[in-house]
């Protein structure tokens, strides 16, 4: 290779390497803030701030969803295995919200450790199956893999 070209090649490699290191360090420093939500175990450990607008995400504990008969109030628990957090919400839930499925709630944590949600989002997983295949696989296979591995007994 011509020496001048070789020199320009080094400049190009330097630009890419330098930019990667710089942005890599920024991302590393911000890694906590880049998470969209707190898992329940971090909330239980007291790592999430109280009375501040945050998001929490986990699997909706089967059997924990209690709907009000008079209005849109709903309460349920989300869990990531080791810990669970009680969520209060008033509003319409997304279509994919279900027991045993993942959800992300946004709102504030009150001093009792209960989550007062202003928005509930359903988190979809990476699995795509036709209805017939899902029926064949049985009841449990209908749930998300990430939520299946959690033991709900604790």
């Amino acid at each position: 290779m011509h020496p001048a070209r070789k020199q320009r090649l080094y400049i190009v490699l330097f630009i890419v390497a330098f930019a990667s290191i710089a942005i890599g360090l920024i991302v590393f420093a911000l890694r906590q803030n880049l998470d969209l939500f707190y898992p329940p175990s971090k909330i239980a450990a007291g790592e999430a701030p109280l009375e501040t607008h945050i998001r929490a995400g986990g699997c909706v504990l089967p059997g924990s969803v209690v709907r009000s008969t008079t209005n849109l109030d709903v309460e349920f628990e989300i869990t990531d295995g080791p810990a669970k957090v009680k969520v209060y919400y008033s509003g319409i839930l997304p279509d994919l919200f279900e027991e045993g499925e993942a959800a992300v709630v946004s709102g504030k944590l009150n001093p009792e450790g209960h989550f007062m949600a202003t928005q509930v989002l359903a988190k979809h997983d990476e699995n795509y199956t036709p209805p017939e295949v899902a029926d064949l696989a049985g009841e449990g296979a209908d749930h998300q893999k990430t939520c299946e591995v959690i033991s709900y007994d604790s």
């Binding site: 890694r31 880049l34 998470d35 969209l36 939500f37 898992p39 995400g57 992300v104 989002l121 988190k123 979809h124 997983d125 990476e126 699995n127 795509y128 199956t129 036709p130 295949v133 893999k145």
Partner: peptide
Amino acid sequence: WWYTLHQPATIKFTEDSTIDPSM
């Protein structure tokens, strides 16, 4: 790397994809 609302990749190059072959 992070907790995101967006689900992880469905088409995987190193293991089985989590999508039915018909799709």
